[in-house]
């Protein structure tokens, strides 16, 4: 995996941990380390509302726009990193 994607994944992992902590998510401690393979829906049982909320955190952090349509099958941290990269590249033009 390239360095850029590694770095973006690392930032998303931090954001996710922070989001789960701020929302007092019960499964945060039980799950352990968040990695690129972490699945938002199955590992943390985030519902559709929470996933949308978390997407806004990512948008703010990376100063990008995430199309709601791109989220339907993108539930791992690694998938999200791909979306962020795509959006950053779109913005760069």
């Amino acid at each position: 995996m390239n360095t850029r994607k590694n770095e973006i994944e690392r930032r998303i992992c931090e954001l996710l941990a922070s989001y789960l902590e701020s929302s007092n998510h019960p499964e945060l401690e039980a799950h352990g380390e968040i990695t690129g393979d972490t699945n938002l829906a199955s590992d943390f049982t985030l519902d559709s509302f929470q996933i949308m909320e978390f997407m806004m955190e990512i948008e703010e952090s990376f100063d990008i726009l995430i199309d709601v349509n791109s989220l339907s099958n993108s539930h791992t941290v690694s998938d999200l990193a791909e979306i962020v990269i795509s959006s950053l590249d779109d913005t760069a033009g």
Partner: peptide
């Protein structure tokens, strides 16, 4: 409103 936007195929961006 969500469904109408999604059915249109447009790019949807939510604001708080």
């Amino acid at each position: 409103l969500y469904d109408g936007c999604q059915m249109s195929g447009a790019d949807i961006f939510r604001f708080r």
